[in-house]
Amino acid sequence: MPALLLGRLTLIAACLGPADGARVTLPPSRLAVRDGTAWTEWWNSTAAPHRYASATPALAPRVSWKAGAAGSTWGELELSGVGEAWRTRVIVVRLDPRRVRLALDTAFVEGSAAWSLDRVAGANTGRGAGVVAAFNAGQFGRSLPWGWVQLNGARFLRPSIAPLVSTFTVAAGGAVQLVHGTLPDTAGVQWAFQSYPTLLNAGDVPLPLRQADCGVDVAHRDARLALGLDAEGRLLIAMTRFDGMGTAFDRAPFGLTTPEMAAVMGALGASDAVLLDGGISAQLLLRDAAGKAHQWPGVRKVPLALVAYQRPRAASTAP
């Protein structure tokens, strides 16, 4: 989804509501997860939780977790929803920031955004060496990311602040933060980007994602990519792909609504989460334990990506 669209939705999101106090509820939708041969409904717009205190038993255990490259695990879920979401595959990656080194990567050619998974796909050479996972980061305009971008300790683009904007930062020592609606302290920040809308703030689903007419389009469906942090401080990345015809249609930008994506992140155990640019921008690479790269490419090249590298092993001390 283009930055422009979400920009109008969320940068100015405020829930005014009708004068009589009645709220416009979410459009009817529900999500079921495949459990063997059966489908189990785990979320319904009529009774959507406002808060996720921990991973939801109905969803999180359904992820078939596999060992990824060092510091990562990954898995997949099959969801069934309404309309274009009737078959949605969710690819989930968990990264331990204590075991991976996070960095942002940019690429431009003649002023146009030029980053794609190809840049990090080679396992042993160039930029791909040591890559555990990579995905597009932030929201994008024509060729530049929206909001604050900090690259290797230096500011690349200036920050923006709004209620549903989240800021992801990586400190020089590797500590990560996802801060919502305000700017974190910029001192010591090595890498940073901003995105929107916030999906979860300390477990809470923001009000504009819980009802219609609050400035966020809660009905629009699109391919989604979200970044979250769980209670243990691990990064949780979830990407949706249309799964209606096997992998043949997997790049079609069908998918979940923003409230549904908030539910996915909360039910998977994220306490804080934000949506990243989805639609034709969404792209994800992860490497499994055997070193094989699994790729879900996007249609467009993007200006910014978050890349997780294997941390070099600590030098062993002589006995």
Partner: peptide, 20 residues
Amino acid sequence: VEGKVQEKVEDATPVKPLSG
């Protein structure tokens, strides 16, 4: 000063978008 900048941003009015 920074606090006031943030307050200004929050004063914006919502806009209902069109879907695709």
